[in-house]
Design a protein around this nucleic acid. Structure first.
Length: 422
RNA sequence: CGGGCUGUAGUAUACCGGUAGUACGCAUGCAUGGGGUGCAUGUAGACCGGGUUCGAUUCCCGGCAGCCCGACCA
């Protein structure tokens, strides 16, 4: 698209109330707008990135489950059955569809917190025979948690995006087999969005969900809230919360020899076993016609948090740096000066790329070179293509990779070729 | 939820017990055109409530909001 048509503008300074790198850069570059503590609107550029991340997740999830959409405001009855109305502090509760309340006493509705209570009856409604198993359902939706302290920009909001996947099995063995498949899918997701090599499966306490360990996907990042003990040789990590002498024995590991690093939890998977099926008395008939409790697993990824982590990890002092897979545009054409030849050339290049289906942003504004470059750096698109009198004379565009800073000269056919393979 | 800090144009900030200055932005014009260019003109502001005071944006109290530390957190 033409930058002159872009809704947002960049700004030089970040708001003084934002300290986190991700919020500062995303706001300066016009990707998000802050509504209140822990709540951000996603502007056109930010929404593009978020959608790309979610589509990468969708692509992997579709291989192992079916997408559905569950309500974000739900009646309390299912929640009564699991007792979580009383145990979860960050629930946003309402007394009616339009009356918000945080009091535990007068609850009629619960705002989307997590969906075990919703998905279990849905599954129960359609699948009661052993022949129907296994299966898995997932959704991507906005979630609400009444965090006592929202922080770190989009890393920990009170409203955020979340994908949750739920799997249903006849027995524990099948659940665990699927659990391993889910791990592989998760790896593919994090590889896909460009943070795979710094993301480690991490043993964590299961919290309310399981008596054993759950598995977190932790991305090494200074902005993270967790500390993990990293065993790089074995490509596994341990959340500090499970680092005890007892666990060292149980797992036969030596925590002292491991590297301690800050990390951010970008995904988490749990073997729920029969916790929720028991609460809802969700059983299936086996071959002998006997009722058996269903085994469940749940698997979460926060796309908005993933977006924040990408910013935290990859951006530099000049601005954002997006991996090609999630960038809002593949290339940024920057035309300089006001010569008619340059304008014509840029227009022609832009039309050609658009016709080829390349997502390209063209800075067609009448601004000075310095401002355009600074803007371009801030926006963080993977490739900058400069069109100017210089490049016309040279017969090739000046192409700069945002991530590496590598500059090359490319003719139009070389450029289209490059973008086709990017 | 405890503790701390902070609320001044759209943004970033300064000063002040006698109602505010700068920069960016925005608007207009001229110049300029490869790293947020220069000049000129214009635009726009004290979170809310109460108290002290002749007078409060400034001091005090309360509220609200934001940030940070901790607690919490699938």
């Amino acid at each position: 698209m033409r930058q002159s048509q872009l809704f947002t503008k960049t700004r030089r300074e970040a708001p003084s109330d934002e300290v986190s790198k991700n919020a500062q850069l995303l706001i300066r570059a016009g990707y998000i707008h802050k509504e209140m503590a822990g709540v951000y609107s996603y502007l056109p550029l930010g929404l593009k990135v978020l959608n790309k991340i979610e589509n990468i997740i969708r692509k992997e999830m579709d291989k192992i489950g079916r997408e559905i959409l569950m309500p974000s405001l739900s009646l309390q009855d299912p929640w009564k059955q699991t007792g979580r109305l009383d145990t979860v502090d960050v629930l946003m509760r309402t007394v009616g569809a339009n009356e918000l309340s945080l009091a535990k006493s007068d609850v009629s509705y619960v705002l989307n917190y997590s969906h075990e209570e919703i998905v279990t009856p849905i599954a129960q409604d359609h699948r009661q025979s052993y022949k129907d198993f296994p299966f898995a359902l997932y959704q991507i939706q906005t979630k609400f948690r009444n965090e006592a302290r929202a922080k770190s920009g989009i890393l920990r909001g009170r409203e955020f995006r979340m994908k949750d996947l739920y799997s249903f099995h006849c027995d524990e063995e099948d659940l665990l087999a699927y659990y391993e498949k889910a791990k592989e899918s998760y790896r593919a997701v994090f590889d896909g969005v460009g943070i795979g090599k710094d993301t480690f499966i991490t043993l964590a306490s299961g919290g309310d969900f399981t008596t054993g360990f759950s598995h977190e996907f932790q991305t090494v990042c200074e902005a993270g809230e967790d500390t993990i003990y990293l065993d790089r040789a074995n490509n596994i990590a341990y959340n500090k919360e499970v680092v005890t002498e007892e666990n060292a024995k149980k797992l036969s590991v030596d925590f002292d020899s491991m590297e301690q690093v800050k990390a951010c939890e970008v995904g988490n998977i749990f073997p729920l076993n029969i916790k929720f099926s028991k609460a809802f008395n969700y059983t299936y008939k086996n071959e002998k016609g006997e009722d058996q409790l269903v085994y469940m697993g749940c698997y979460g990824i926060g796309p908005s948090r993933v977006m924040g982590i990408i910013v935290e990890k990859l951006s530099d002092d000049k601005g954002l740096v997006w991996p090609k897979s999630v960038a809002p545009f593949a290339a940024h054409i920057v035309s300089l000066g006001d010569s008619e030849e340059v304008k014509k050339e840029a227009e022609e290049l832009y039309s050609t790329l658009v016709a080829q289906g390349v997502a390209v942003l063209w800075d067609d504004t009448d601004r000075r070179a310095g401002e355009k470059f600074a803007d371009s750096d801030l926006l963080g698109l993977p490739l900058r293509v400069v069109v100017s009198e210089k490049t016309l004379a040279a017969g090739a565009y000046e192409c700069v990779e945002r991530a590496s800073g590598t500059t090359t000269q490319k003719t139009q056919s070389e450029l289209t070729d490059y973008l086709a393979h990017a």
